[in-house]
Amino acid sequence: MPSSNFVDYVKIFGRSGKGGPGSRHFRREKFIEFGGPDGGDGGNGGSIVLRGNSQYWTLIHLKYKRHIFGEDGEAGSGARCSGKNGTDVVINVPLGTVARDAETGEIVCEVTEDGQEAVLLKGGRGGLGNWHFKTATNQAPRYAQPGEDCVEGWFILELKVLADVGLVGFPNAGKSTLLAAVSAAKPKIANYAFTTLEPNLGIVECRDHKSFVMADIPGIIEGAHTGKGLGTRFLRHIERNSILLFMIPADTKDVREEYRILLNELEQYNPELLDKQRLLAITKSDLLDEELQEAIAADLPDIPSIFISSVSGYHIRQLKDMLWEALQRDNQ
């Protein structure tokens, strides 16, 4: 089975450039007996910078390039000439990338906008040349500053998919089928668990040429926050969704209990996820008659809900309107 091109987790080693040393040069010219110090400053070392690029959607370009080094600054020279600065290394990353210190787990920076730049490792400053240290009592300093040393470390880059609406549900809840029905996305659809092994994004068009981004997150199972099933690998993608659309099939034995399990998994992973707007879609509703639909509706959780069928198109337009209105409330 070929490996997926979707890579949302990489560990890299970075080292910024050293600062160049300042020069201890003295002016030496014909007919000038005591020229004095004229050593230039050293150049700054190159930094390692993350830059958001909306054309990237995965971290696969970093999977086989784990070691990244900045360029050292050049030494200063005579006539107060400064050394050349080391070139920064710019790493393009998809929007939603989070950089963490591999040892402490602390967040170093986050990149969420196209063109945004964040310094992962700052290059060392160049040293001052000896002419900076000339004084009335020390007119011939024979010393200069060395450049600052480089900074290095291991970092973990994680991608959290940016989307307006995230689909949350157990495997085979109909998430991929809905995404395919409302957008041009072509997720894999099959009648077995964990068909979706990576997040899929689709642009959903609604009335008056308005649109929003929907993300199909791989299925959650009970105990996912402890590593069961696909574990916590994809739970982090839900953190960047504005609205969570819970999807539960109409043939589920207990809709309220399944919703409780899903909600508990999100809470155990990150309690802040409960602050997001939540909507509920009862999928595969073309299997229900009016009497069954009314019976299920009487015992639904206390959140906005709708019965839909992605195959027949039942209430799909109404669902898109609900999501758009919820997004407007979220932006207020």
Score class of each variant (00 low, 15 high):
K188H: 12
I238E: 01
R278L: 09
A281V: 09
H25P: 01
F69P: 00
E272G: 04
C81S: 12
A326F: 01
A99K: 05
G35Y: 06
T104R: 10
S211N: 13
F133C: 07
R260Q: 14
Y143F: 15
P218I: 12
G42E: 08
A295S: 13
V311P: 01
S285I: 10
V108G: 04
L128Q: 10
I217E: 02
N241E: 07
R51W: 03
V111Q: 03
R278V: 06
L274I: 10
W57P: 00
L59W: 04
D149I: 11
G231M: 09
D88N: 15
H132C: 04
L59T: 02
V311K: 15
Q55N: 14
S211Y: 08
F13S: 11
K175R: 11
A298Q: 07
R15T: 12
L244A: 00
A140D: 15
G231N: 12
L274S: 10
V98L: 07
L59H: 01
V213L: 08
G166M: 02
L300T: 00
T196K: 08
R51F: 05
P2S: 13
A181M: 06
S54R: 15
K134I: 11
D254F: 05
A118F: 03
G83R: 09
E148D: 12
L292E: 11
L279V: 05
S305Y: 13
L95V: 10
P249N: 11
G86Q: 11
F34C: 14
P301T: 01
S23G: 09
I308Q: 11
L197M: 08
C150A: 15
L167Q: 04
R240V: 01
G96S: 05
T137R: 03
P21I: 01
R142L: 15
I156N: 14
L280H: 08
L262C: 04
S312E: 12
N130S: 09
T87W: 05
E103H: 12
E33F: 14
K210W: 01
E29F: 15
L319T: 07
E117P: 04
G229T: 13
E205Q: 10
G36C: 06
P187C: 13
N44S: 15
S176W: 04
A144N: 04
